[in-house]
Design a protein around this nucleic acid. Structure first.
Lengths: 334, 334
DNA sequence: ACAGTTCTTGAAACCGCTGTCAAAGAATAG
DNA sequence: CTATTCTTTGACAGCGGTTTCAAGAACTGT
């Protein structure tokens, strides 16, 4: 348990002042090659690692960016996190995660910790934290949001072409001859959920098909809610030949429900999801879905934040969506 | 962009000295109720949040524990991360993740960052970092490992009853009448993989069945490797009626491979995984697997670390495994 | 009323590192 | 050989907290 060496230790060993050690550490000031070498040698010898906490305090910059997430467990957030990590790589900034568990109190606590740790920037992944609070934070430190909208901070939010994605998805089903297409929606307070539903209705009406309210059930983006929603749908007794789910996780639940009922996919019912999670390649059969790369979103969020930190405009691109046709959709049976 | 208030600001506003402010902040020293109230009021008024970086420097304790993970993306690590977060909750410690991406260099870099940030403890999730290095670190700060073994630091490693778990799984298959049971193993350098394979062979031999090397294929724990391993297995042409995969992710890949070949699960082939990831409830059909709660492991790792930080022995429990029979296993067809 | 305690409190030092500043040393110019 | 400029360096003052220390205030008991 010997104490960690400090700049002073290095200075002593290299016969220079702490200032000089700091200079070779930061590299933004000239120092005589000989002394520099001595310092480097001392660093090597003592296996010295500068204390980032102290540096952060001295510089007033922590070089960490806070990531306010909701859950570490879901595939969805995992990919996002990975993307952020990618985007931050090589920037010198490190991401620190804190989760809100979809609970206001936890979210507030997580945010407090992040802010108390003097994060230099913040990435907000979904959640319910009030827009006003986020706007206030953005006055202190740069902020980017993914998977949510912040009134008045639109250019700090990653936009996903949800409507066009679901339009394509439903259009695809229509092209396959489906006329009775059900929709399992996400949390209605969620912008993504609304937009995806909008794309669904638009595709229907643009094809001259009526929107039947009895074919629309609300879920909450979880597998279980997908399963439940399917039960509700089936219980209503309205005929349908395809289901468009507002996300992949619900599609998984729906898939299981169909299996339980002995309904074959895609022979009896076609199924389309949204997100294209990593796991969707390995469902049985592989899921037709709308890709909105979470990795890419994370990456872009990180890059945008980096730009903000450099006092540039965030310049967030709009994330395009793309229909990935796999094997859960088929031509409707005559 | 107004500056964050500091203790001095509070002190001035409350007409006391910074020391007194600090005293009410830490609460480990008496201060007159009236002054205390004044300080609290000032804190409230200025919306003051003590700078944890500064506190960490002063105290020599960062109150953060580093988590060296390999990937943020996989379900497996996600659950682990969640468990750690749970276990840390309320302790005042915060977890900070850094990933090694299964690459020595990245792992070293991630570890360096964590250590430079003065983490008070470390949880290592898998990875290849050399035992000697980890032992050295453990001399500086407490360390717990999950999903790996560290020579000489056995009581700091979460132990999972892998062998007994796979024994049960294979026993279950044997009980269902299966005699030709294939095994898709994990990375052989991985202790878990070895133990699981050991359980497999033990179950076979204890039932008087021969271990056929041609029924054993090596994978690397990913879905894709599962799919590939199945191809290899099939190409060998040896007959089998069941497959035991060393983890769920490979089982997913195998499941897809079987689907592609038109082999029904469980009618033609029974399939068992290992881990019981969250997603395994929603595969089609739901996967029979061996549960080793990753959440629990994370939780226990965190608790153990907390104990170490309190100078108590880690007292890590052995994680029990339990066969979860779902719908991918069935009696072998006559 | 006085000596002896017990509370409270502010000044000051420190945690480890960085930036500023002025001085010393080296190099160049005249 | 002196004047001038450019390097290189150490001392020092923070960054925002915490803790130690000694002093002043407020009690205590006799």
């Amino acid at each position: 348990m010997s104490k960690q060496p400090t700049v002073s230790d290095i200075a002593r060993l290299a016969h220079v002042s702490p200032s000089t050690v700091s200079r070779v550490l930061t590299g933004n000031s000239r120092v005589h090659p000989a002394k520099s070498a001595a310092v480097l040698a001392a660093i090597e010898q003592l296996n010295f690692r500068p204390n980032l906490t102290a540096r952060a305090l001295a510089l007033g910059k922590s070089m960490v960016i806070g990531i306010l997430t909701q859950s570490m467990m879901s595939q969805f957030y995992g990919e996002l996190a990975q993307g952020i990590e990618d985007g931050l790589a090589g920037s010198g900034y490190q991401g620190v995660f804190a989760s809100g568990h979809w609970e206001s109190l936890d979210e507030q606590a997580a945010l407090d910790i992040l802010l108390a740790r003097q994060v230099d920037g913040l990435i907000v992944l979904g959640g319910y934290h009030p827009d006003t609070a986020l706007r206030a934070i953005n006055k202190q430190i740069p902020l980017i949001a993914v998977g949510r909208h912040i009134e008045g901070l639109e250019d700090h939010c990653i936009r996903v072409e949800n409507a066009s994605g679901s339009f394509q998805a439903v259009r695809h089903l229509i092209d396959l001859g489906h006329r009775r297409i059900a929709h399992i929606g996400g949390i209605p307070s969620h912008l993504d959920a609304c937009e995806r539903q909008r794309g669904y209705t638009e595709a229907l009406t643009s094809a001259g098909l009526a929107v039947d309210e009895r074919l629309i059930v609300e879920g909450n983006f979880t597998e279980q809610s997908g399963l439940l929603a399917l039960e509700t749908l089936l219980a209503r007794g309205s005929h349908f030949t395809a289901i468009f789910a507002a996300n992949d996780q619900m599609a998984y639940g729906i898939r299981l429900g169909l299996y339980r009922r002995g309904l074959r996919v895609p022979d009896d019912i076609s199924l389309v999801g949204f997100d294209d999670l990593l796991g969707s390649v390995y469902t049985t059969p592989p899921l037709t879905t709308v890709r909105q790369s979470m990795l890419e979103q994370g990456r872009q969020a990180a890059r945008g934040l980096l730009r903000l930190l450099a006092n540039e405009p965030p310049a967030l691109p709009s994330i395009t969506t793309e229909l990935v046709i796999r094997e859960t959709t088929a031509r409707v049976r005559g």
